[in-house]
Amino acid sequence: MDLVTLRDVQAAAVRIERIAIRTPLLPFGEDFWLKPENLQPIGAFKIRGAANAIAALEPSAVITHSSGNHGRALAYAAARRKIPVTVVMPDTSPKVKVDAIAALGAEIVMVPPPQRLEVAEKLAAERGATLIPPFDHPEVIAGQGTIGLEILEDLAEQPEADVIIVPVGGGGLISGIAAAVKALRPACRIIGVEPELAAESAESLQRDRLIKWPTEKTYQTVADGVRTAPSALTFAHMREYVDDIITVSDEEILKAVGVLATQARLVVEPSGAISVAAYLYRRGFLPGGRTAAVISGGNVDPELLRSCL
Rank of each mutant, 00 (worst) to 15 (best):
Leu6His: 07
Arg7Thr: 08
Asp8Pro: 15
Asp8Cys: 12
Asp8Gln: 12
Ala11Gly: 13
Ala11Met: 12
Ala12Val: 10
Ile16Pro: 15
Arg18His: 15
Arg18Phe: 15
Thr23Gly: 12
Leu25Lys: 09
Leu25Thr: 10
Leu26Ile: 15
Leu26Glu: 12
Phe28Ile: 08
Phe28Thr: 14
Leu34His: 11
Pro36Met: 11
Asn38Ile: 06
Asn38Asp: 08
Gln40Leu: 06
Ile42Val: 00
Ile42Pro: 03
Ile42Met: 00
Gly43Asp: 06
Gly43Ile: 03
Phe45Lys: 10
Glu58Gln: 07
Ala61Tyr: 07
Thr64Gln: 09
Asn69Gly: 04
Gly71Trp: 02
Ala78Tyr: 09
Ala79Gln: 07
Ala79Asp: 07
Arg80Ser: 06
Arg81Asn: 04
Val88Asn: 05
Asp91Ala: 00
Val96Phe: 06
Lys97Ala: 01
Lys97Gln: 01
Lys97Met: 01
Asp99Tyr: 05
Ile101Leu: 01
Ile101Glu: 03
Glu107Asn: 10
Pro114Tyr: 01
Ala120Val: 05
Ala120Cys: 08
Arg127Trp: 04
Ile132Lys: 02
Phe135Ala: 04
Pro138Glu: 00
Glu139Arg: 13
Gln144Asp: 12
Gly145Glu: 14
Gly145Met: 09
Thr146Glu: 13
Ile147Gln: 07
Glu150Cys: 12
Pro159Ser: 14
Val163Arg: 05
Ile165Lys: 09
Val166Ile: 07
Pro167Glu: 06
Gly169Cys: 04
Gly172Asn: 03
Ile177Asp: 05
Ala180Gly: 14
Val181Thr: 13
Lys182Val: 08
Leu184Thr: 02
Leu184Lys: 00
Pro186Gly: 05
Pro186Ala: 01
Gly192Asn: 03
Gly192Pro: 05
Leu197Lys: 03
Ala199Gly: 14
Ala202Phe: 02
Gln220Thr: 14
Thr221Arg: 02
Arg227Ser: 01
Ala232Tyr: 11
Thr234Asp: 03
Phe235Lys: 02
Phe235Gly: 02
Ala236Leu: 09
Ala236Lys: 07
His237Ser: 10
Met238Val: 15
Val242Lys: 04
Asp243Thr: 00
Asp244Trp: 03
Ile246Asn: 10
Thr247Met: 08
Val248His: 02
Asp250Thr: 05
Glu251Asn: 11
Glu251Val: 10
Glu252Gln: 09
Val257Asn: 04
Gly258Pro: 09
Leu260His: 13
Thr262Phe: 06
Ala264Arg: 04
Ala264Cys: 00
Pro270Met: 13
Ala273Val: 01
Ala277His: 07
Tyr279Glu: 15
Phe285Asp: 13
Gly288Lys: 15
Arg290Ala: 13
Ala293Glu: 06
Val294Thr: 11
Gly297Gln: 07
Pro302Tyr: 11
Pro302Val: 11
Glu303Tyr: 09
Leu304Ile: 00
Ser307Trp: 10
Ser307Cys: 06
Cys308Gln: 09
